[in-house]
Design a protein around this nucleic acid. Structure first.
Length: 107
DNA sequence: AAATTGACCACAG
DNA sequence: CCTGTGGCCAATT
């Protein structure tokens, strides 16, 4: 299993109405330092794989730059549609909506 | 085919 | 406390 596939699996396992950080995904994937790979994986964004990139935010709980998705507004709409309130700056309440990562119980 | 960059994070000074 | 470097894997040029 390549890191990429693991990242996709983790992101796909994020419960609805919750968000996860790159670092968290990387950590669960087995490489706490490979957070960049998570970003790279989502950048390629193989939507065909059903990857909810909008549920993945950076360490600050902030959404990706405008270069991704085609507009952070889209991401904000998706998050709000999932039940995650987003600030006007595109910030998510990580203290309340950060995915615990224990629901799928990794090894 | 090789080198550099990249939606980032964590540790050290 | 804040700044700087290291590091991971894949994609892009």
């Amino acid at each position: 299993m390549n890191f990429f596939e693991t990242v996709y699996t983790m992101v796909s396992k994020i419960p609805r109405g919750r968000v996860a950080t790159y670092g968290q995904i990387a950590r669960l994937a087995g490489n706490p330092r490979a957070s960049r790979i998570v970003g790279c994986a989502l950048h390629t964004c193989p939507a065909s794989s059903g990857i909810p990139c909008h549920r993945v935010v950076n360490r600050e709980g902030r959404l990706a730059p405008a270069d991704a998705f085609g507009g952070p507004e889209v991401q904000r709409s998706l998050l709000e549609a999932e039940g995650v309130p987003v600030s006007g700056e595109g910030c998510v309440d990580l203290k309340n909506y950060c995915w615990d990562g224990r629901e799928h119980a990794p090894e």
